[in-house]
Design a protein around this nucleic acid. Structure first.
Lengths: 349, 349
DNA sequence: GTTAGCACTCATAACATGAAAGTGCTAAAA
DNA sequence: TTTTAGCACTTTCATGTTATGAGTGCTAAC
């Protein structure tokens, strides 16, 4: 981004009013905004000629762009940024949205389900796809083994972040209840506090060292856990199809490119990683180094539990999006999570 | 569908060859197939004029259609049906596909996860969206309650079909291990064999009748289970975005309509319900009464466990799809499930 | 400093044109 | 009788042309 002469970030009231109107009109209409539109729709008390002059200056200073010489103006990345930082009024969520969120995010599931629900809800309210990035550094809280039938065990892995994973182990021989109880105890003694991604490694050591006599059960359990842990649970795209409603993607080819792009781990992961500052991160267009994102914005919410961050929910959209509503929605979700996740372990420390 | 004169379903060899070539060429090219193309590409030993005559007859008998007078032919619903029933050669899956399936469907998760994996894998191999319909009539196998911390319980609900659901109950007071054990026993005694959808109803009765003294715990558990059971777990669209690659949806508006359509429960549910006969159901275009599906085909696989059917995986596509590969893939998946699901309870009876 | 007025630019839509693809039909060939 | 070569015909698609309209920048007057 180029830095312009010092005064450029200090717009006078009229310029602010015009910039703000252009941004808001373009956000809702997706059409370049002309001087006449501004006078008619936004009742600015200047003539269209004056506004044209001002818009020309705003363009020279980099806040607005013109798709072609005889078109109206659209906000540039810098324009959006100025709007978000200085002009935008925080929006109250409608009762409809609030009640939809409240009814959808209930807190009965585990943390991962909760985050998935939230990603889905956000996507439905904002009509944009969301990406859920789970923090993988999570420690084992507890392992339970449930005997479903003589040869089938259900293994439940509870993490300190509150995620529950379960998988089956199919045995070749019948196993007695007592063995399972013992095994559970030994496993918990050896494994509690282990990072989940090391679980199968440490398990191997445990088997080798002290649990040789249980190996016919343990091998199967180990195999199951290993598989479950290696599964790629880092990302999830919710409601990609929402983009089909946007005029930006009236061409299916563009829609396809967008979908491919947001499915490319590296692009999104890298960008989101850098996005966060103080719960909420906003990256607009070319502020991201990634060229493929130059026309997109990413608004990311960092979700914390016990002061450790456990995941991020990111809204991915063309630059043209309702920043105000997006931010309000994410903030509301965040406040909800603060309540939902805190209560889990008040007593735990 | 109109029924034509008796002999029409008995095509001579040349007509079969031509029909088959038209279908296969159109499936792979998505362009109307002309007589010259057939001669050049498929080395039919007749001149283009002969083939034109035959195609005209095939059209009169309803097997082919012509988008406009100077275009090539495309298969009609009846043409596809004849192809599927009489002409199509069963395709062997490629090693790549087989190994992808084998590596993706492992059997470590519960039945629901397994079905989700399968729906996803099928969608990725066939490049079409899939819909998973879970049979909701499922009986309780077992409930386990795990104490996560003094005031937080994890409830694990195991169904006879092999699905695991878990949810948390947050208590207002500390609860002792012994109470949980007792409670678990009582709950299992009262609830095993209950249809999952009645669970909260029966739970209410249990509370009312005999478990008044546990109510401070049980109320919370009940609330959690109720929520978990009422959640709509009937359907899931995997990889809707795959349709963006199809020329049928080069117009984003059409893509949007398709996505909306397959998100409409009633349309899909009703159609799929009727689709199955003997594991595999194939509904082509206007064979479905639903007008919105007139250009789509649905290939449905019925998945069984212990001779009860537990869910369906359905491929939804424009009529133009590789029926042979689709059917081979679904059959292979089915054979895999036969193994995976049988072993679960060999001993259960 | 503001605004009316006007010439100018460019996108878009409507229409015309020509080439390409593919047909159906006829008459000759097998 | 069946097959095929040849040709007139139809329609789509891409291209080119033109007219319209939205919106601008600039100038001169207020």
């Amino acid at each position: 981004m180029k830095v312009l002469k010092g005064d450029c970030m200090n717009l006078d009231d009229r310029k602010k009013k015009i910039l703000s109107s252009v941004v808001e009109d373009y956000i809702s209409s997706a059409e370049p905004v002309g001087s006449k539109t501004l006078v008619d729709k936004y009742h600015l008390e200047y003539s269209s000629a004056t506004i044209r002059n001002e818009m020309k200056l705003l363009e020279e200073e980099g806040f607005l762009e013109q798709p072609h010489i005889s078109a109206g103006r659209i906000p540039s990345t810098k324009g959006y940024r100025y709007y978000v930082d200085n002009l935008m009024k925080e929006q109250k969520l409608s009762m409809v949205d609030i009640s939809y969120i409240d009814n959808s995010i209930t807190g009965f599931g585990d943390t991962e389900k909760l985050l998935e629900q939230a990603a889905d809800v956000i996507s439905k309210i904002l009509l944009r796809p969301t990406v859920l990035t789970l923090k993988q550094q999570d420690l084992l809280e507890n392992i339970k083994i449930v005997k479903v039938s003589d040869k089938l065990l259900l293994i439940i892995i509870l993490s300190q972040n509150g995620t529950v994973k379960d998988c089956f182990a199919k045995l070749t021989d019948v196993v007695q209840d007592q063995i399972i109880d013992e095994l559970t105890e030994v496993l918990n003694q050896s494994l509690v506090g282990t990072p989940l991604e090391n679980l199968s490694l440490v398990l191997n050591n445990v088997i080798a060292k002290e649990l040789n006599n249980f190996s016919f059960v343990l091998d199967k359990i180990c195999e199951s856990i290993k598989y479950e842990m290696e599964k790629d649970c880092k990302k999830l795209n919710a409601n990609v199809e929402t983009i089909l409603d946007l005029p930006e993607f009236s061409d299916a080819e563009k829609a396809k490119n967008f979908v491919n792009m947001i499915s490319t781990k590296e692009i999104i992961d890298d960008t989101i990683e850098k996005a966060i500052s103080n719960d909420l991160g906003i990256i607009i267009g070319s502020e991201s180094k990634e060229v493929m994102l130059k026309d997109c914005s990413i608004i990311s919410l960092d979700i914390q539990k016990n002061k450790k961050h456990i995941g991020k929910i990111s809204v991915i959209s063309p630059k043209r999006l309702d920043y105000s509503k997006t931010i309000s929605t994410l903030k509301y979700i965040n406040s909800k999570f603060k309540n939902l996740l805190l209560n889990d372990k008040e007593e735990g420390g």
